[in-house]
Design a protein around this nucleic acid. Structure first.
Length: 325
DNA sequence: TTCTGTTTACCAAAGG
DNA sequence: CCTTTGGTAAACAGAA
């Protein structure tokens, strides 16, 4: 595996906080959720720095998972053996890194509990996520080729934390989508359909092999950036997420993404909906709301965030919000 | 036992 | 300056 030649930065500590790294890992997964071990793996696969002192940084990472509200825990199903839960990103934390810095967030992410009104458990959010996934799954099964949106996007709708509609040029998924390149030069879009409620091992591993190119300080990724990459990697070690990003996006203003987020399905990257551990629940047959594959932002950018998926008055979004610490 | 997950504490750096 | 955020250590409990 070791790519001879160019490990220039690969041993350096990546300029990302654990929160960033974890978010990247989660976002890179088709299901937008990963078990702890997979998060470890993602990081270690891509950042050689973290192949050492695992005790230390993994402890830190675990701490971050628990400590930060931007990570939510999704319990495993009985049919999904394994240790620990899945971890997902809180749907509203997309703007966490809005300032373009992956070292320090704009502000801390806090979940406000609606004290009395609420089924305010993370489990609800988790369930919602899962349901979204299933809905998409069934939609996929129904339409065959149709490609729904990522759960986070739909999950966001009506969310409290995004009062001004869509805007997160620095959403991790955007960044990742921009960074990850498929071997064929096809940009991997993090905006993927959700084939299943739970990650399938083979999916994850296949993802793993296809991801991770285009990271300057990432092991074995040298030279994978094609010229279409909007970000010049010329000299800076971390320019991918570093300097250029900010001006790039801020230049076009805050509310509209300067760089169009790849919302194209990227079929190649779509794991072809392999045999599911559990049969597709037909009980979820009520039409999947807001699955219009047309746009995650073109539509949402100007309309009120809640419009498309009213059917799903997200229980989670009602109780989740961002607050200054 | 090991792995996960939670929690507390302390410190350093960044940011206002 | 003070506050916030991030990194680390560590103790601890629970699950596989």
């Amino acid at each position: 595996m070791p790519r001879p030649g160019r490990n220039t930065y690969s041993d350096q500590k990546p300029p990302y906080s654990y929160i960033s790294l974890t978010a990247m890992a989660i976002q890179s997964s088709p299901e937008k959720m990963l078990p702890l071990s997979e998060i470890y793996k993602f990081i270690m696969d891509r950042f050689p720095y973290y192949r050492e002192n695992t005790q230390r940084w993994q402890n830190s990472l675990r701490h971050n998972l628990s400590f930060n509200d931007c990570f939510i825990k999704i319990p495993r199903r009985p049919d999904q053996p394994g240790k620990g839960s899945f971890w997902a990103l809180h749907p509203s934390c997309g703007d966490m890194f809005e300032n373009g810095s992956f070292l320090r967030r704009r502000k801390r992410f806090k979940v406000l509990k609606s004290d009395h009104l609420a089924p305010s458990k993370p489990a609800d959010a988790a369930q919602y996520l899962q349901q979204q996934a299933k809905l998409r799954l069934s939609a996929l099964a129904a339409s065959g080729t149709h490609l729904p949106q990522m759960p986070a996007a739909a999950y966001n709708l009506g969310g409290v934390a995004q009062p001004s509609g869509f805007k997160h040029p620095f959403a991790i998924e955007n960044i990742i989508a921009r960074e990850y390149k498929m071997p064929g030069g096809l940009a991997f879009s993090a905006m993927q359909p959700v084939p299943a409620a739970y990650p399938l091992p083979n999916q994850l591993t296949s993802m793993g092999s296809s991801l991770g190119t285009g990271w300057p300080h990432v092991y074995g990724s040298a030279g994978m950036l094609d010229s279409a990459t909007p970000i010049s990697m010329a000299s800076g070690d971390y320019s991918a997420y570093g300097v250029p990003l900010k001006p790039l996006c801020h230049a076009a203003g805050q509310t509209l993404p300067a760089i169009p987020v790849p919302i194209k399905p990227a079929p190649a990257a779509v794991p072809a909906l392999p045999a599911l551990p559990a049969p597709i629940p037909s009980l979820l047959s009520h039409s999947p709301p807001s699955l219009s594959p047309t746009s995650s932002q073109t539509a949402t950018s100007q309309s009120s965030p809640a419009t498309p998926s009213e059917t799903l008055t997200s229980p989670a979004s009602a109780l989740l919000s961002v607050a200054v610490h």
